[in-house]
């Protein structure tokens, strides 16, 4: 057992040495594969951030009831009373039109423009949270509220949240597909690199076979090579995306602030990093298996 570990250890360092002794070709190869892996990993980050946004929306589903512009305080009192009586309502908050205008002015930074308006164009509104926020229940609540006096419209953020969920689900499938395809690409690149390496070390392999090396022994350093290159590609992809996040999040944050929200692309979680590195290593290892099984068979 100790011999077996010692052999693997020796092969590992030998392979690492080979990689280090050819820095330019190693760097170019892992850069190509790293940038290839950036696409699925980057898409994952985007989806992960959208998923978190969706989670926030789902935790606080809100129904907004907009009153007619010309509604008066008795209309508001009436709706207030109806909401108070409704057993499905968990809690609600009245937002007067003046407060809404003030909030809009603060968030959008167009105070001067709003100040120039002849009258407040915003309606009074109620923001309602329901006890049971299933889509069916919300739809039922919405339909009944629309029949209340002086209610102009009812808006529920779940509509676009549902669209977002559908988009995320579609994106998830797309990422799986892209990941499989690009992992296959990485495998093919590594497999081909290894095939060329085997060709350049054919004499050494032939001698080893003649003096008693098994196919497994011959294959071992190439498998390490593939896995190490895959791992390095994963690290490169992670590094590139971290740099991109740092650069792009400043812009995204500024852009989302314009809409009064705080949205940034989130970085990799430790488990996502582990999956990225393990996945790229496995892709490299599989590429090495393909490369060696074909090339060694012909020696």
């Amino acid at each position: 057992m100790l011999n077996w570990i010692s052999q693997h250890w020796h092969t590992f360092w030998q392979t690492l040495g080979r990689l280090v002794r050819a820095p330019i070709s190693t760097l170019l190869a892992i850069l190509v594969m790293g940038t290839t892996l950036c696409l699925p990993a980057g898409l994952y980050l985007m989806l992960h951030s959208l998923n978190r946004l969706q989670g926030v929306i789902h935790e606080n589903p809100q129904v907004t009831i907009f009153m007619k512009i010309l509604s008066n305080s008795s209309d508001i009192q009436q709706v207030n009373g109806l909401l108070n009586q409704d057993t499905e309502v968990k809690d609600y908050k009245f937002i007067p039109k003046n407060e809404a205008l003030k909030s809009l002015a603060q968030r959008s930074g167009i105070t001067d423009l709003l100040a120039g308006l002849p009258s407040n164009p915003l309606p009074d509104a109620f923001v309602v949270r329901l006890k049971n926020s299933t889509p069916e229940n919300i739809a039922y609540f919405k339909n009944s509220v629309l029949n209340w006096p002086s209610v102009d419209s009812v808006q529920y953020d779940a509509i676009w949240a549902q669209r977002l969920a559908a988009l995320i689900s579609l994106g998830r499938n797309f990422i799986i597909l892209i990941s499989v395809l690009l992992a296959f690409t990485v495998s093919v690149i590594i497999g081909n690199t290894i095939r060329l390496q085997i060709a350049s070390r054919q004499a050494e392999i032939e001698v080893s076979i003649l003096i008693g090396a098994t196919r497994r022994f011959i294959r071992r350093p190439f498998l390490y090579f593939g896995a190490l290159q895959g791992l390095a590609s994963g690290l490169i992809a992670w590094g590139i995306l971290q740099l991109c996040l740092m650069a792009i999040n400043v812009k995204i944050s500024a852009f989302s602030n314009l809409y009064g929200s705080i949205f940034i692309l989130h970085s990799f979680s430790p488990s996502a990093i582990a999956v990225l590195l393990a996945g790229s290593s496995v892709a490299g290892w599989l590429g090495a298996i393909f490369g060696t099984s074909y090339a060694i068979k012909n020696i």
Binding site: L2, N3, W4, S6, Q7, H10, S208, I211, G212, A213, T214, F217
Partner: peptide
């Protein structure tokens, strides 16, 4: 040959 045979 010794590495092939698994010698340390």
């Amino acid at each position: 040959p010794l590495h092939i045979c698994g010698q340390s």
